[in-house]
Design a protein around this nucleic acid. Structure first.
Lengths: 199, 199
DNA sequence: ACACTATAGGAACCTCGGTTCCGTTTCCCG
DNA sequence: CGGGAAACGGAACCGAGGTTCCTATAGTGT
């Protein structure tokens, strides 16, 4: 599942490629900091480029955001794959991935907003990357469970929910809202011990 | 800390009061279902009223939303207070409140969006209700801790974070995202057992 | 019943931000 | 070096949605 760009990559003029890169990078800076509501004009300005040029490279704001989001998901995939191949104990691998991915999201307002529910249409348009991530996560959980490091009823959806929930501690800055603490609580919650729930 | 309306309540004409009620109710229906992005025109239409009238009763969209939010927070406060006075075991009271409040949020898109981070300015404008809720929650936690029903390092902020995080399972409808399951995981996580965290 | 004012109604206004359009500039190739 | 296509710049366009404003209407007190 490649990008259209990947497929029929007939690299246009030299300055075009240069601008494409530059735009992507500046867009990342702007949107990561200000979220999806940042304006196209600002991206263009930061990239030292006219809006027209911006739109020549990305037909729509959504397309630009989607591209940025896709790159992040690729990082998630990488993190997960690396952990799986690292040979470290399954429980540690599991925790390491959650922490690493959280760290990525913490620096990217777009990710946060998408995971939190607004901009869900972006997530929907991701395609294969999404499934790939799911598969790898399933493997990660499975190993951790076999090692007795996480509760046996944990599913990939559970992990997804928790990670998405974790993002709220990043988007909100109420006093005492610290996502590392939040993550710590979550990790404790998925541990192997069976709960004592009375009812 | 009363509303301006509460304070200098000089009930105007009869139809005015009627419309005020009607608008509030219809606004609740519209915004609860569609979130903060629902349009003022739609609220007016649903209430069988012109936009002008709508704006006569609420000077601004934000004011209207704030009013709706405040009412919800009052419900949270009520739930908590009732649980504290119910005489049931502290651990159960604690869980009951989280479930009850979650149930309320689950039916209100505005709450969800506010708690999740967008619309945080609304939360900030709440005033005394916020502090009141915090105080009650602290008491709730304290009792549960003394009863040995929840981990001893749990703070009101922690509960806040978790509840906010829980909202993402309501705003997102990815397959497998079920807020009741999410809440169950969280409740297990705050239990009294000390975790086995290796690192 | 009447006048007087509070209230309703809804077209029009204004701002904001994504997108388009087209004249100008820059690169590339012969 | 010159011609032509590719790329650029940014003013102008446009729809969306909150808010205003002014005329019509309908309670209310005498």
């Amino acid at each position: 599942m490649n990008t259209v760009a990947d497929t029929l990559e007939k690299p246009q003029r030299a300055d075009a490629r240069r601008n494409h890169e530059r735009i992507l990078q500046c867009a990342r800076e702007v949107f990561s900091a200000e979220g999806v509501d940042a304006q196209m004009d600002e991206v263009a300005q930061r990239a030292g480029v006219g809006v027209g040029t911006l739109y020549r490279h990305f037909p729509t704001k959504e397309a630009l955001l989607l591209e940025l989001l896709r790159e992040r998901v690729l990082v998630f995939i990488d993190n997960t794959r690396n952990a799986l191949e690292s040979g470290q104990p399954a429980g540690e691998a599991f925790r390491a991935v959650l922490v690493a991915n959280a760290e990525v999201v913490a620096g990217d307002a777009v990710c946060q907003q998408v995971l939190v529910g607004m901009g869900e249409q972006l997530w929907a348009k991701l395609g294969g990357e999404r499934d790939q991530l799911d598969t790898l996560t399933a493997e990660l959980i499975d190993r951790a469970q076999r090692a007795g490091a996480v509760r046996s009823d944990l599913t990939p959806s559970d992990v997804g929910m928790m990670m998405c929930g974790l993002c709220t501690s990043m988007t909100r800055d109420a006093p005492g809202f610290d996502w590392r603490r939040h993550l710590a609580l979550l990790l404790d919650g998925v541990g192997p011990q069976r709960p004592q729930s009375p009812a």
